[in-house]
């Protein structure tokens, strides 16, 4: 692989639930000790590389830390462990101007667009503020962006609540695209849309990537979408990366029991009546993760080793898997 565009090394972020002053006082009075701070390791020791023009799918159940990874890479939150380097530079040390090359498309287009600003102004604002194009060319530039994203320019005069969900998400994509990014983080960009609209938006994202050579980190829990759009896929479970490799390979022939279970749980179109196989058990509380491999309470292949020692991410052919008993 050529030099990676984005390189994530041992990334970690925990969220601490600070006890209230009253709880601290109560605990001090009754036991004489400060209460134990509860911490959630939302992202735990994650490493991966992303090449230029590559699309990486990030999949996993709700609450497994996918969105936290997205927010770490866009700089919305800071990591407390590890580092992210973009084109060889540490993200934390980069100037804001260079960070603009990493843009984000949010899950909820209604929530992520300013409700009191006309859509067109929102797309133009970033371009204007950062002088992405000379002021004289702004109008033509925006017209080009709208055309690329399949947006009727008339809608630019409207407010977010006055256009349909699919159109809104096109504006969300246009806003990111107008900043001339190299890397776009898509945080479940179609999860809030109707199925009929989802395909349109996904095809739009695929076309934009082709035409502009964009890199994507595509967060989703829809494995079919990831298979369609991504070169590689990374599977997360409870803040950890458990399997990463070529998208088609990983999804059609999973080696980690969890990836396999995820694939089984995804609905498929077949003529036969099919049994829906849900992954047994609930996702464990991230406040109190199980000992050993985090997946062991739900895994049919779990051994004593799985219950005592957490597996490392190891090379297994062309991919990496964190499992003591890979399939």
């Amino acid at each position: 692989m050529t030099a990676p565009l984005l390189s994530v090394r041992n990334l970690g972020r925990k969220f601490v639930q600070k006890p209230s002053a009253v709880a601290v006082a109560a605990s001090l009075l009754t036991t004489g000790k400060r209460p134990v701070q509860k911490a959630v390791r939302a992202v735990n020791d994650i490493s991966f590389d992303l090449g230029p023009g590559e699309a990486l799918g990030l999949v996993g159940e709700s609450g497994c830390g996918k969105s936290t990874v997205a927010r770490l890479i866009t700089g919305l939150i800071t990591p407390d462990q590890g580092a992210i380097t973009y084109k060889g530079e540490t993200l934390a040390a980069m100037a804001r101007k260079d960070r603009l090359k990493i843009q984000m498309v949010f899950q909820d287009p209604l929530g992520s667009l300013d409700p009191r600003m006309r859509l067109g102004d929102q797309i133009a604002e970033g371009v204007r503020v950062h002088n992405i194009v000379p002021a004289a060319e702004l109008k033509d530039y925006l017209a080009g962006i709208f055309a690329d994203c399949g947006i009727d320019p008339v809608l630019a005069q409207r407010y977010p609540h006055q256009v349909s969900g699919g159109q809104r998400q096109r504006f969300g994509i246009a806003r990111a695209l107008a900043m001339k990014p190299d890397l776009v983080i898509c945080d479940e960009p179609v999860a809030a849309l109707d199925v009929s609209i989802q395909a349109q938006v996904i095809n739009l994202l695929a076309r934009l990537r082709r035409e502009r050579g964009l890199s994507y980190i595509f967060i989703s829990h829809d494995l079919n979408v990831v298979r369609h759009l991504c070169d590689r896929v990374a599977v997360m479970y409870l803040g950890k990366l458990i399997e990463i490799g070529d998208a088609a390979e990983v999804l059609s022939d999973p080696r980690h029991p969890y990836t396999s279970a995820l694939g089984d749980a995804a609905p498929r179109v077949t003529l036969d009546a099919q049994e829906f196989r849900a992954i047994k058990g609930e996702i464990p509380s991230p406040l109190n993760p199980p000992k050993g491999c985090f997946f062991n309470p739900r895994c049919s292949l779990a051994t004593d080793l799985c219950r005592s020692e957490a597996p490392e991410l190891r090379d297994l052919g062309a991919r990496k898997v964190a499992c003591h008993t890979p399939l």
Partner: peptide, 22 residues
Amino acid sequence: GREYIEATHVLGFSHFRIVLRH
């Protein structure tokens, strides 16, 4: 706490602009 304010951070706007314009 809403996402559109997060979006303004990703767009690299100044605090001044985020507070006054959004």
